[in-house]
Nucleic acid binder design. Structure first.
Length: 580
RNA sequence: GCGGCGGUCGUCUAGCCUGGACUAGGACGCCGGCCUGCCAAGCCGGAGGUCCCGGGUUCAAAUCCCGGCCGCCGCACCA
C-alpha cells in the first residue's frame, strides 16, 4: 500500500479525517476532521499563531471577519471578475479551453471585457475550431469559483462566501490601523474558513472546496527602507526557483541567503523575504525538513490579478510530488486602492516626518479675473486643466513662447504665472503596500501526518512533533486485574487531566498492544503503573520514538510530561533509566 | 466537465469475467471474560455488511445493462 493510502486508512480508522456526508454518498472536496484531526489542526493553528502573531505582537494583530461578503467587496477586490473564466468545450474530443485564449489565438482580436455570448458569436462567425483536434466548439460558459448566496430575503442582495480571508483585513484596515494607534508596519492576521467552488477537487485533503486559511496582510510604507527589519535574518537560507530560472527550463531551486536573494533581485522586497523565512521555519517545525521544501516563483501569467510577485512554498509529499502549502504575494497597494475607489473612503495613511520639512516647490498661479474676462464660458475648463498641469512645463512654455496652450487657448503671463513657494510639510499621505503570507491549514494537517508517519518493527508510529500531538500523554496500568495498580493509574490520569492535558487512558488488552495503540496516534509519552509503584510510588515513562523508559516518582509525572512535551526534554533527563 | 479504472463489515480484502448452494468468506481492528511483572502475546465468547445510490434485464443480481454519487489517474484552475 502506498504511504498516502496508509495514512488515509489510518486517518479514517483512528479519527483524523474522512470525506464529509459519507452516508449520503459524499460530496467532493469536503472533509470532516475527526476527534484527533480536529485537535491536530488546532495545534497547527496554535503554532502558526505563535510564529506569525505572538512572536510579532509588537506589529501584528489577529482579527476575525465574516465568511459572508456583500458582492460589492468582491467586485472591488476583483474576484467577481477575475475569479471567473470563460470556458468552452470541444464537442468531439471534450477538452476544455479558456474561450478567450482560443479566440485570441485564432482570430487575433482582443477579448478583454467580452461576454460569453460575444465570444460564442465570434467562434461561430469566424469558425474557430478546437485547437487540439479541430472539432466543433460548444457554447462558451462562465465558471466562477465563488460560492454565491443571497443576504436576507431580497433577491438583488447578492453575497458570496469569501475565497480568501484577506479582503476582511483590507476592508477593516482603517479601523485596525487606528485602534493600533496609527503605526506602520502593521500586520493583520486571520484564521478563518474560506470556500472556493473548485471545478474538480481531488487529492483528498489537499484540494478542498471549503478550508481554513491562515494569513497575514502586512502593511508598510513602500518608500521606507525595511532592510533593518531583517537584521539577524540576512543569513537565513531559502531554496528558491525563480521565474527567470523557470523560464529557462530550470527545475531545481537554488539556495540563497535572504541577503543574496534580495541583492540579486530574486525577491523584490525585504518584507516578502522576511515572511518567507518565517514560513520556512514554521513548516520545519511541523516536521518538514529544509531540503523537502522550496519556494517557487509564479510566472507572470500564473499570478493572481492582484500580485506583482508571488512565491508558492512547496513541500514534497509522496503522492503528488511538490504541493503548495503557502503563497507569498506582493500585493502592492492594489487592494486598498480598489476599496478606496469602490467605497469612496479614504484609506490612505498619514505619516508624520520626524521633523516638519520645508519644501520649495513651484506653483501655478492663475489670474482668475483676467482669465474670466478674456475666455468667458470657457474659463472653468481652463482652470480645471491648469490645476492638473506640471508647473515646470508651464513655466518653460511661458519663458520660451510667452504663452502656454490650455484647452486650445493661448494664455499669456497676464493670465497665468509660476511662482516658487516654501511649504512646511508635516508628513505624507500614502496607500500602504502589502505583502501576504497565506497558508492552507488542512494541507498542513496532511503534510504533518505524512512527515510523522513511520513504521517501526512492523508497527505504525506517528512521530509528530511533541507539541503537535493531539493527545499528550498515555496512562496505563501494567495489568488490569490488580485493583491497586488500576486505581493509581486512574489517579495519575486525573492529575494530568486537571493539569490541562489531553490524556489517552487504556486498560484493555496487554501492555504491548496499548503502547502500540498510543504510538499509532502519536502520543509522545506513556506512563505505566506497575507493581513497584505500589511499593515505592514510582512509575515508568516511555518515549514514543525511542521506546526507552525511565522511572520517576509519580508525584513528578505532571511536571515531567510538561517538560517532555512543551520543552522537548529528553526522556533521560526525567528519571532513572529502566534496565532491559 | 470529459476519458480510463474503481467502490463488498470499522479497516484491508476474497467473490464479479462465466448470474443460482453467498444465510456474502477471511484477516486485522473493536467489545466482553479469563490470563498476563513492559512492547500488536495466549485462550474463550461476541457485535458488526441497505455488497455506494437509483433504475432495468432475469424465475433469480454483489455479479449483466443504464443513470447518478464518490474516489484514483490524465486535460484546465488553485492554499
Amino acid at each position: 500500500m502506498s504511504l498516502y493510502r496508509e495514512i488515509v486508512e489510518l486517518a479514517k480508522r483512528r479519527g483524523f479525517f474522512w470525506p464529509s456526508y459519507e452516508i449520503y454518498g459524499g460530496v467532493g472536496g469536503l472533509y470532516d476532521l475527526g476527534p484527533l484531526g480536529a485537535l491536530l489542526k488546532q495545534r497547527i493553528m496554535e503554532k502558526w499563531r505563535r510564529w506569525f502573531i505572538q512572536k510579532h505582537q509588537h506589529m501584528v494583530v489577529e482579527i476575525e471577519t465574516p465568511v459572508i461578503m456583500p458582492s460589492r467587496v468582491l467586485e472591488a477586490s476583483g474576484h467577481v471578475e477575475s475569479f471567473t473564466d470563460p470556458i468552452v468545450e470541444c464537442r468531439s474530443c471534450h477538452r476544455m479551453f479558456r474561450a478567450d485564449h482560443v479566440v485570441e489565438d485564432a482570430v487575433g482580436v482582443k477579448t478583454e471585457g467580452l461576454t460569453p455570448e460575444q465570444l460564442t458569436r465570434i467562434i461561430r462567425e469566424k469558425n474557430v475550431r478546437c485547437p487540439a483536434c479541430g472539432g466543433e466548439l460548444g457554447v462558451v460558459r462562465v465558471f466562477n469559483l465563488l460560492f454565491r448566496t443571497q443576504i436576507g430575503p431580497y433577491k438583488g442582495n447578492v453575497g458570496y462566501l469569501r475565497p480568501e480571508a484577506a479582503q476582511g483585513m483590507f476592508v477593516s484596515f482603517k479601523r485596525v490601523f487606528e485602534s493600533m494607534r496609527g503605526r506602520l508596519p502593521l500586520g493583520i492576521g486571520q484564521i478563518g474558513r474560506v470556500a472556493r467552488n473548485e471545478i474538480s477537487p481531488r487529492q483528498g485533503m489537499i484540494r478542498l472546496r471549503e478550508f481554513t486559511i491562515m494569513e497575514v496582510e502586512f502593511f508598510f510604507d513602500p518608500e521606507e527602507d525595511y532592510r533593518g527589519m531583517i537584521r539577524g535574518f540576512e543569513g537565513e537560507k531559502l531554496r528558491i526557483l525563480s521565474a527567470e530560472d523557470r523560464a529557462q527550463g530550470r527545475e531545481e531551486p537554488r539556495e540563497y541567503t535572504l541577503q543574496e536573494a534580495l541583492d540579486q533581485g530574486v525577491v523584490i522586497h525585504p518584507l516578502l523575504g522576511y515572511w518567507m523565512v518565517v514560513a520556512r521555519r514554521f513548516v520545519e517545525e511541523l516536521g518538514v525538513p529544509y531540503e523537502n521544501q522550496f519556494f517557487e516563483e509564479k510566472l507572470p501569467e500564473e499570478r493572481a490579478h492582484y500580485a506583482s510577485q508571488t512565491f508558492d512554498q512547496l513541500v514534497k509529499v509522496e503522492r503528488w510530488g511538490w504541493v503548495e502549502v503557502s503563497g507569498h504575494a506582493y500585493r502592492g497597494d492594489y487592494d486598498l486602492s480598489r476599496h478606496m475607489k469602490f467605497s469612496g473612503q479614504d484609506l490612505t495613511v498619514f505619516k508624520p516626518y520626524p521633523e516638519p520639512r520645508i519644501v520649495r516647490r513651484k506653483r501655478i498661479v492663475a489670474n482668475k479675473q483676467a482669465i474670466g474676462r478674456r475666455f468667458r464660458s470657457k474659463s472653468p475648463q481652463i482652470l480645471r486643466e491648469l490645476a492638473s498641469m506640471d508647473p515646470a512645463r508651464v513655466e518653460e512654455a511661458l519663458k520660451k513662447d510667452g504663452y502656454v496652450v490650455v484647452a486650445g487657448e493661448k494664455l499669456s503671463k497676464e493670465h497665468v504665472y509660476v511662482e516658487e513657494v516654501e511649504e512646511k510639510v508635516a508628513g505624507k499621505r500614502f496607500i500602504p503596500h502589502v505583502v501576504e503570507p497565506s497558508f492552507g491549514a488542512e494541507r498542513l494537517v496532511y503534510v504533518t501526518l505524512e512527515y510523522a508517519y513511520r513504521r517501526k518493527e512492523g508497527r505504525t508510529v506517528l512521530s509528530l512533533p511533541r507539541d503537535l500531538a493531539p493527545l499528550q500523554a498515555a496512562v496505563f496500568p501494567l495489568v488490569s486485574n490488580v485493583a491497586g495498580i488500576v486505581g493509581e493509574a486512574r489517579r495519575i490520569r486525573d492529575k494530568l487531566v486537571d493539569a490541562g492535558l489531553y490524556v489517552f487512558y487504556d486498560e484493555s488488552g496487554a501492555i504491548g498492544r496499548r503502547y502500540a495503540r498510543a504510538d499509532e496516534i502519536g502520543v509522545p509519552v506513556s506512563i505505566t503503573v506497575d507493581h513497584r509503584t505500589l511499593e515505592d510510588g514510582t512509575v515508568t515513562l516511555r518515549d514514543r520514538d525511542t521506546w526507552r523508559q525511565v522511572r520517576l516518582p509519580s508525584s513528578r509525572v505532571v511536571e515531567a510530561v510538561k517538560r517532555f512535551v512543551w520543552e522537548n526534554a529528553s526522556i533521560e533527563e526525567l528519571g532513572e533509566p529502566v534496565e532491559g
